[in-house]
Amino acid sequence: MPPSEKDTGVPVFRVLRGDPEDAALAALVAVFGALAAAVPPPAAPVPSAWSPQTRPAWRTSTLP
């Protein structure tokens, strides 16, 4: 896997206490990787000016 542009060689996290097994550390890295790769939810669409949820000014614009 090629290094990312943000890769500075500084560890993202470190183990402060204990001696984790390789499997536990791999699971933690997999979870962090999945969270980093998660796609953010799409932004809410902007309502159209013709939407019935907008002000009804366009409907009454031709009234005297």
Rank of each mutant, 00 (worst) to 15 (best):
Ala38Thr: 09
Asp22Met: 03
Met1Thr: 10
Ala37Tyr: 05
Val10Ala: 13
Leu25Gly: 00
Gln53Phe: 15
Ala23Val: 05
Val31Glu: 10
Ala36Asp: 05
Ala26Thr: 10
Pro41Ala: 14
Glu5Gly: 15
Pro2Asn: 12
Val39Ala: 12
Ala36Leu: 10
Thr8Ser: 15
Val15Ala: 10
Ser51Asp: 15
Val10Gly: 05
Pro40Val: 04
Val15Ile: 15
Val46Pro: 00
Thr54Gly: 05
Ala37Asn: 11
Phe13Thr: 03
Phe32Ile: 04
Ala30His: 08
Pro56Thr: 09
Ala43Trp: 08
Trp58Asp: 10
Gly9Asp: 01
Ala38Gly: 02
Glu21Leu: 07
Ala37Ile: 06
Pro11Ala: 13
Pro20Leu: 03
Gln53Val: 14
Pro11Val: 04
Val39Gly: 09
Ala24Ser: 13
Gly9Asn: 09
Leu25Met: 14
Arg17Gly: 00
Pro3Leu: 14
Arg59Cys: 10
Thr54His: 11
Gly18Lys: 01
Ser61Trp: 08
Ser48Phe: 01
Ser61Val: 07
Pro56Cys: 06
Gln53Ala: 14
Val39Pro: 00
Ser4Gln: 12
Phe32Lys: 09
Lys6Cys: 01
Val46Ile: 12
Phe13Leu: 08
Val39Phe: 02
Ala26Cys: 06
Ala36Arg: 04
Arg55Asp: 03
Ala34Tyr: 06
Arg55Phe: 08
Pro11Asp: 03
Pro2Ser: 02
Ala34Arg: 11
Pro41His: 06
Ala27Thr: 04
Arg17Gln: 07
Ser48His: 13
Arg55Pro: 02
Ala36Lys: 00
Met1Gly: 15
Pro56His: 09
Leu35Met: 14
Thr62Leu: 15
Trp50Lys: 13
Pro11Tyr: 10
Ala49Trp: 09
Asp22Pro: 00
Pro41Ile: 01
Gly9Ile: 00
Phe32Thr: 05
Pro64Lys: 12
Leu63Ile: 07
Gly18Thr: 00
Met1Asp: 15
Val12Met: 06
Val46Cys: 05
Ala43Glu: 15
Val10Phe: 08
Pro41Met: 12
Arg55Tyr: 11
Val15Arg: 04
Ala44Tyr: 08
Pro52Asn: 07
Trp58Val: 05
Val10Arg: 06
Pro2Glu: 04
Ala57Ser: 14
Asp19Tyr: 03
Thr8Leu: 08
Leu35Arg: 12
Phe13Asn: 01
Pro20Ile: 04
Ala57Ile: 07
Thr62Asp: 13
Ala38Arg: 10
Ala43Phe: 11
Ala38Lys: 09
Ser51Met: 15
Gly9Ser: 12
Ser51Trp: 01
Pro64Val: 00
Gly18Val: 00
Thr62Gln: 09
Leu63Phe: 13
Gly18Pro: 04
Pro64Glu: 00
Ser4His: 06
Ser48Ala: 14
Glu21Met: 03
Gly18Asp: 02
Ala37His: 05
Pro45Phe: 01
Leu35Gly: 03
Val46Ser: 11
Ala36Pro: 01
Val12Glu: 10
Asp19Met: 05
Gly9Trp: 02
Gly33Arg: 14
Val29Lys: 05
Val39Ile: 13
Pro40Tyr: 01
Ala24Pro: 00
Ala43Arg: 09
Ala30Thr: 13
Gly33Val: 01
